[in-house]
């Protein structure tokens, strides 16, 4: 991007946000404020995408949606046990990201920022669900879109399935039940750690806790999981 183009691009915005780009730097993205220009998170490719989103690049937003949609849907699904809710909440997260694009600043890894929003959305949902006195669905009941994939699998196939596959499906159900028995905080920590491979520091940033709190939450979650899964573990050992 040439210098004059950079000025045009920044027209109407606060002049302090504009960094004039030399021709040799053309491939670099315009970044707001001097402090953020030196942010270590600029190396994160998703941060770069988000900066492009901020500057009005819709294609970049699509890339972000595609990159993170399955991870968010998976997280919400395991939190609340329903695909339709998971997709609604994921969409809510992306809407919030999009709505906040103008104010975005790369002060953390993009995934940390995104999952922080996801965590807030999950907590808001939980809170509103509680206020609505909604009866939580058990895994044997069907949601508004009919049975969920795992439940359907169990219901349809258990009668005819070879015993090994049946055992696998049963195991899935047992693990799912164990996860559901964890408190929502413990569940969130487990999902972020096990499936998102997040460090304790990142989880702490996402959930607004100290790393010590994350450490002890995770310890309790792991001990609880062991307790809930003990019968299966013992059976396998025999």
């Amino acid at each position: 991007m040439a210098c004059s183009e950079a000025i045009r691009h920044a027209a109407g915005r606060d002049w302090r946000r504009v960094r004039f780009v030399r021709p040799e730097d053309e491939t670099r993205t315009l970044v707001s404020t001097a402090k953020i220009e030196t942010s270590p998170y600029l190396r994160d490719p998703d941060v770069q995408l988000m900066l492009r989103v901020r500057d009005g690049d819709e294609r970049a937003f699509e890339e972000l949606v595609q990159a993170y949609q399955d991870r968010l849907v998976g997280l919400f699904y395991h939190m609340f046990g329903r695909q339709d809710v998971a997709e609604d909440l994921t969409q809510d997260v992306f809407l919030r990201v999009y709505a906040a694009r103008g104010r975005y600043r790369p002060t953390a890894r993009f995934s940390t920022w995104l999952f922080r929003i996801a965590h807030n959305v999950a907590m808001n949902y939980r809170r509103s669900k509680r206020h609505a006195k909604e009866v939580p669905l058990k895994t044997t009941e069907s949601g508004p879109l009919g049975m969920q994939p795992l439940e359907r699998l169990i219901a349809e196939k258990s009668a005819l399935m070879p015993s090994r596959q049946l055992a696998a499906v049963e195991q899935q159900k047992i693990v799912r039940d164990a996860i559901e028995k964890l408190s929502e905080r413990q569940r969130m920590v487990v999902l972020l750690n096990r499936f998102e491979h997040m460090s304790y520091a990142d989880i702490a940033a996402v959930m607004n806790l100290s790393t010590d709190a994350v450490k002890s939450l995770l310890s309790r979650a792991r001990r609880n999981l062991r307790e809930y899964l003990e019968p299966v573990l013992k059976r396998e050992q025999r």
């Binding site: 395991h78 997709e87 899935q172 693990v175 396998e236």
Partner: peptide, 21 residues
Amino acid sequence: EMVAAWEMLDVLPRIRATEAF
């Protein structure tokens, strides 16, 4: 047992967003 329980989490299905999402 804690390690084994942790590894059992791998059996959970990987959920994906639907195609139209």
